[in-house]
Design a protein around this nucleic acid. Structure first.
Length: 593
DNA sequence: AAAGCGCCCAACCGCCAGTAC
DNA sequence: TGTACTGGCGGTTGGGCGCTT
C-alpha cells in the first residue's frame, strides 16, 4: 500500500501537484488539491494580508492563480469567499441600518433566497452577510410569533398577477428610458463624436420625438420601451444600454429558467430578432407571445409596424426573415457607394449597416465580459449615429418560456441599478479587456500634425468596426500620450480612461481616423507604418515587467525571461497562438450569440 | 467559577452553469 | 460531444462568544 501512495505522489508531482485520488471529496475541482494540505478554520491576519496582496496584483477573477501566487494553504474557492465576504474594499463593517433591513425584507419578498441578487442592491454588503441577517431575523420573528417576513408577500403577488404586463409594475410601457446615472458624463461633453464622409459632419442634435404606440394592437402581453431624445448620440447610447439590458435578460433567462434551451437559443437568437429603425424615434420592442404563434405573430407585428410607417418618416422595418438579405445588400451598396458618397446622409443604409455591426460588436464584447452582470455604462464607444438606428427585440421563444416570476426578475435587471465594470488596473488587463478591438487591426499608422492638436490613426479596413480611442481628460498631453512612446499598452489604456471629446474622421477608401483633442497638445510624430504593432511590442519590452503587468509579477531582467513569462501568461489566458507577431493579433474575438 | 445553552457569523460544502479543450 | 476545470450560489456547519443557571 505504501508503494502505491509513493507512486501516486510521484505522478501527482508530474502533473503539477493535482491529486490523483478521485472520490467524493474530490468531486469539486476547487478542492482537487490534496485537501490535507489546505488549512481550515479562521483566517489569520497574515493570511489576509497575503490574499490582499495577491488580489491587488492579479485582480479578483482568477482564483486558482491567486491561490498559487499567494502561497496560501487555502483552496482557491475559499480565497474567493474570504475576499468577497470580508476583505474586498468598500465592505461595510457595521450592522445593517434600518433602511438596509427594510430593503432586504422587500427584496426577499421579491426574489426569495437569491442572496447574491439581493446583495447586488446593497452596496458594500455580501450575500453571506445578508443571508445570515435574514436567518437571524426570521428566527427572531418566529420566536416572537410574527410572520417570518414583515413584507406582505400575498398582496405584492396579487399586484403582479393582476398586471397584464409584468413590466408594467414598475415601468409602464412607453415611459422613457431611465436617465443615465450620474456617473455617466453628459454625452456631448464626454463622449466621442464621429465624423464621416458617409454622414453629416456635424452631429444631428435635434430629432423630432414621435408618438409610436403599437402596444394596443400588439396584444396585452406586449411591451414597448421607447427612447426619446434630442440627441442622436444620446439615443444611440440609450439604445446601446437597452440592447445590453435585453442581452443581459436573455442571458439571465437562460441561466435561471430555461438553461436547457441554451443551444436552441444560440441558434435562433438572430433569426428571432425584430429590428425597427426610424430616424425619428428609437423603439425597443419586446413581446410575450405564445410559442406556436411565433411566426405569424412576428409577421403580424411587422405588418402592424409597417402600417404605421406613414407616421414615421423614412422608417424601415426589417423582419428576421429578410434581415440577412438586407444586410448583404446594404453591405454591397456600402461598398459601391464608398467612392461616390459625400456630404450628409447620402448613404443611410450603409450607415445603418455599419451602426448595426458596431453595436453587435459592442454588445458581444459586453457579453464576453466573463462572470459579469454589469453594464458598462461608462465605457463609451465611438459610435457613429446617423439619422438611422436599429432596435432589437429579444428572442421570442426565450421570452415566451419565462414564468411571470422570471419576468419580474428580469424587470428588475432591466431597470435596477447595475454596478460598473471595474476598470482594469494594469496594462495587461487593459489589453485583455480590449483585445477584441485590436484583433481587428491589420495595418496601423499613427501620426500627429504640426499643431500637435490632432493626430491621425490609419487603420486597416477590418478595424472599422472597432475603433475606440479616447484620451484621459485629466492628464492629456505630450507627457501622457507621447505618440512615439505610445505603445500598444498606452493605447489600450486610453480606450478605457478617456472622456474627452474625440472626433473621428472616416475618409473614403480607407479609414483615416482623425482624433481631435479639444485644443490640447499632442506631440507631432512621424507616421508609423504597418509595423506599428510590432514596433510597439518592442517598445513594450523596454518597460519593466512589473510595470507592464501592473505589478502582477515580480520584475525580472533579460528579454528572454520577459518573453517567456509573457508567453506563459498569455497561454494561461488563452491569448497566445504560435505566432511571433504581437499577440493582439491572436486574440480571437468570438460572439457569444 | 464553570458547565450548559443558544446565537451569530465566518467558513465550508455541494451543486450547477459556463467555458475550454 | 464529452470531459475537466473554474467560478458562483445557496444551504449548512461549527467555533467563538455571551448569557444563564
Amino acid at each position: 500500500m505504501e508503494m502505491i501512495y509513493i507512486y501516486i505522489s510521484r505522478i501527482e508531482a508530474r502533473i503539477g501537484g493535482r491529486s490523483c485520488l478521485v472520490g467524493p471529496s474530490n468531486s469539486n475541482s476547487w478542492m482537487s488539491e490534496a485537501e490535507t494540505r489546505h488549512r481550515k478554520g479562521a483566517w489569520s491576519k497574515d493570511e489576509d494580508e497575503k490574499l490582499k496582496t495577491a488580489v491587488e496584483q492579479l485582480g479578483d477573477k482568477n482564483w486558482v492563480r491567486i491561490e498559487k501566487f499567494s502561497g496560501l494553504a487555502r483552496p482557491a474557492k475559499n480565497c474567493r469567499l474570504r475576499w468577497i465576504n470580508y476583505l474586498r474594499p468598500n465592505l461595510k463593517k457595521y450592522p445593517f441600518t434600518k433602511q438596509e433591513q427594510d430593503l432586504i425584507f422587500q427584496l426577499h419578498a421579491t426574489y426569495g433566497n437569491a442572496w447574491s441578487r439581493i446583495a447586488s442592491h446593497l452596496p458594500g454588503r455580501s450575500d453571506n452577510e445578508i443571508k445570515n441577517f435574514w436567518h437571524k431575523s426570521a428566527k427572531k420573528r418566529q420566536r416572537e410569533g410574527l410572520r417570518i417576513s414583515p413584507i406582505n408577500i400575498d398582496s405584492s403577488q396579487t399586484m403582479i398577477s393582476t398586471s397584464q404586463s409584468h413590466f408594467q409594475l414598475k415601468l409602464p410601457p412607453f415611459s422613457p428610458m431611465p436617465a443615465p446615472s450620474q456617473t455617466c458624463l453628459p454625452i456631448q461633453d464626454s463622449y466621442s463624436t464621429v465624423e464621416s464622409d458617409f454622414f453629416p459632419t456635424q452631429p444631428i442634435t435635434q430629432l423630432p420625438s414621435i408618438q409610436f404606440n403599437p402596444v394596443e394592437t400588439l396584444g396585452e402581453n406586449s411591451y414597448m420601451h421607447q427612447v426619446k431624445s434630442d440627441s442622436n448620440l444620446e439615443i444611440i447610447n440609450e439604445l446601446r444600454k437597452a440592447r445590453a439590458r435585453v442581452r443581459f435578460l436573455e442571458k439571465k433567462l437562460r441561466q435561471r429558467g430555461i438553461s436547457n434551451k441554451r443551444n436552441n437559443f444560440k441558434q435562433s437568437s438572430r433569426n428571432d430578432h425584430l429590428f425597427i429603425k426610424s430616424p425619428q424615434g428609437a423603439h425597443l420592442l419586446t413581446t410575450h407571445v405564445p410559442l406556436d404563434e411565433n411566426s405569424s405573430r412576428m409577421e403580424e407585428i411587422t405588418e402592424d409596424i409597417s402600417r404605421r410607417k406613414d407616421d414615421i418618416q423614412d422608417s424601415t422595418v426589417i423582419s428576421a426573415t429578410n434581415l440577412q438579405e438586407t444586410e448583404r445588400s446594404v453591405s454591397e451598396e456600402s461598398r459601391h457607394s464608398e467612392m461616390s458618397t459625400h456630404g450628409e446622409n447620402s448613404d443611410s443604409k450603409a450607415s445603418l449597416h455599419k451602426g448595426f455591426e458596431r453595436e453587435e460588436d459592442l454588445f458581444d464584447e459586453i457579453c464576453n465580459v466573463k462572470n459579469s452582470e454589469t453594464f458598462p455604462e461608462q465605457r463609451h464607444h465611438n459610435y457613429h449615429v446617423n439619422s438611422q438606428y436599429n432596435v432589437i427585440a429579444p428572442n421570442w421563444n426565450l421570452w415566451n418560456e419565462c414564468s411571470s416570476s422570471l419576468l419580474q426578475e428580469l424587470e428588475e435587471d432591466l431597470f435596477g441599478e447595475r454596478s460598473q465594470i471595474d476598470q482594469p488596473s494594469s496594462p495587461k488587463r487593459h489589453m485583455d479587456a480590449l483585445g477584441a478591438v485590436y484583433s481587428q487591426s491589420s495595418a496601423t499608422t499613427l501620426e500627429g500634425d504640426e499643431s500637435g492638436q490632432h493626430f491621425k490613426c490609419s487603420m486597416g479596413q477590418e478595424f472599422s468596426d472597432g475603433l475606440d480611442i479616447r484620451f484621459p481628460d485629466s492628464n492629456l498631453g505630450p507627457e501622457s500620450l507621447p505618440v512615439n512612446q505610445n505603445t500598444a499598452v498606452g493605447l489600450v489604456e486610453c480606450s478605457y480612461l478617456v472622456s474627452q471629446p474625440v472626433a473621428v474622421h472616416e475618409s473614403m477608401g480607407r479609414q483615416d481616423f482623425s482624433l481631435q483633442t479639444s485644443g490640447e497638445n499632442i506631440s507631432p510624430t512621424q507616421p508609423c507604418q504597418s509595423s506599428f504593432i510590432e514596433h510597439q511590442y518592442h517598445e513594450a519590452q523596454q518597460c519593466s515587467l512589473d510595470e507592464f503587468y501592473g505589478g502582477m509579477t515580480e520584475s525580472t531582467s533579460g528579454e528572454e525571461t520577459w518573453k517567456q513569462e509573457l508567453m506563459e501568461d498569455l497561454v494561461v489566458d488563452n491569448l497566445w497562438v504560435e505566432d511571433e507577431n504581437f499577440f493582439f493579433n491572436t486574440y480571437d474575438y468570438d460572439s457569444p450569440c
